[in-house]
């Protein structure tokens, strides 16, 4: 679980240009300066990375990084490769 939250935080940092210190397990998307399409981009990246279907609308602005990790694990994603 820890590994997965770390990796999702890293994806946010790398792909969306968020400062590294600003993303942790408890960080919600609403705290980041992400626009409405950022969640769409993250949906596609997570689906590709973890090989589980992520529906449009699964990720909500109020979700934290650890909420997203839990959601992916519920869908059967394995934590960290």
């Amino acid at each position: 679980m820890r590994e997965m939250t770390d990796e999702i935080a890293r994806i946010m940092v790398d792909v969306f240009g968020v400062p590294p210190g600003r993303v942790g397990a408890a960080t919600a998307f609403t705290e980041l300066e992400a626009d409405s399409l950022t969640l769409a981009e993250l949906t596609l990246l997570l689906e590709q990375r973890y090989g589980v279907p992520v529906a449009d609308g699964d990720l909500r602005p109020e979700h934290t990084v650890s909420d997203v990790a839990a959601l992916l694990r519920d869908k059967g994603a394995a934590g960290g490769r």
Binding site: S36, L37, L39, A40, E41, T43, L44, D56, G57
Partner: peptide, 11 residues
């Protein structure tokens, strides 16, 4: 509807 269009378009 922008967001679902985005996701479906890419997929």
């Amino acid at each position: 509807r922008g967001r679902p269009v985005f996701v479906n378009a890419v997929r």
